[in-house]
């Protein structure tokens, strides 16, 4: 990154730390990451590698696995845009305007995080289950909610709801409204201001948000498990299928699907890395040069 390029000229740069401290900090966070993420997940990927390519292909090409992949991708493809619209709208409202009850609203947005996944699924059962008023009506109209696609979609939207908004709010608050005010005073409309001024300022945080939302939408297990009904080849998403394989004593198969899921969920990350390479250091430092 930019600061490192200047390092050779000023070995004891006033805006950086001594090399020893730098390496120590890198080491500490690397060890932390290794203990909690890399080693455990490494064992997962390690087993897939040991089991070999053939076993991986066998699992992936099974029809139940393919249907799980399709289901997970369709759910994420709908849930992410949905939350994108919400996230931008909510963050815009919270960061750029002053109104009463803002803290309350922010807290409400965070709420799905604090709801146990077991409960996030259950609330939809309470709303649309067989002994409710709404559920049987919708079902009679040929539009079942729970134990069908809409229920899985709703549960996924619920658990991923805060991701994008939460990513944008601190950033947009830190940026303040000066740029927008300048744009408005120069005669730009609200929409123009948003597209030309706000969006470029928040694009990286937005991308992070989408990435997280997408990853979580694909990986959600608890909530979806409650509303799915676990019918193989029909309402089983990838995480549920992983559990099913694991319970079939097919640990290799389960871990193969898990690795694939991680790869799929991180597609956006790969995109971001590609963009970073293309635009160089500009990406990391945003507008402040």
């Amino acid at each position: 990154m930019a600061d490192q390029q200047s390092a050779p000229h000023h070995p004891r740069d006033a805006v950086s730390e001594p090399a020893l401290v730098r390496w120590l900090l890198i080491l500490i966070s690397a060890i932390f990451l290794a203990l909690f993420l890399v080693v455990p997940l490494g064992t997962v990927v390690g087993r897939v590698v040991v089991a070999g390519w053939g076993s991986f292909v066998d699992t992936i090409s099974e029809s139940d696995t393919q249907s799980a992949i399709r289901l997970t991708l369709s759910v994420a493809a709908l849930a992410v845009p949905f939350n994108l619209v919400f996230g931008i709208a909510a963050a815009w409202a919270i960061a750029k305007f002053e109104f009463k009850g803002k803290t309350f609203l922010t807290t409400l947005i965070d709420l799905p995080f604090s709801v146990s996944p077991v409960i996030s699924g259950l609330v939809y059962v309470l709303l649309f289950g067989a002994d409710t008023w709404l559920g049987p009506q919708l079902k009679a109209m040929g539009f079942p909610i729970i134990f069908a696609f809409p229920g899985i979609f709703l549960a996924t939207v619920f658990v991923t709801f805060p991701f994008i908004a939460r990513e944008l709010i601190p950033l947009m608050q830190a940026q303040g409204t000066a740029d927008e005010e300048a744009a408005i005073s120069l005669g730009a409309s609200g929409w123009q201001t948003f597209i030309r001024v706000t969006l470029p300022n928040i694009k990286w945080a937005l991308l992070y948000g989408v990435l997280l939302c997408n990853a979580r939408a694909m990986g959600e297990f608890g909530a979806v498990s409650v509303v799915s009904g676990h019918v193989r080849g029909k309402t089983e998403t990838m995480p549920l299928h992983i559990e099913a394989l694991y319970n079939d004593y097919s640990t290799d198969g389960a871990f193969a699907v898990a690795s694939l899921l991680a790869a799929l969920a991180l597609v956006t990350l790969i995109l971001r890395t590609l963009l970073e390479v293309k635009f160089g250091a500009d990406v990391g430092n945003g507008r402040h040069k």
Binding site: V125, D131, G229, R232, G233
Partner: peptide, 20 residues
């Protein structure tokens, strides 16, 4: 024949809640 497997109690609850 479609199959659904899970803990016995959880499966019963799903059927009660409307799993067909």
């Amino acid at each position: 024949i479609n199959q659904s497997h899970g803990g016995s109690g959880k499966q019963a609850r799903s059927v009660i809640d409307g799993l067909e």
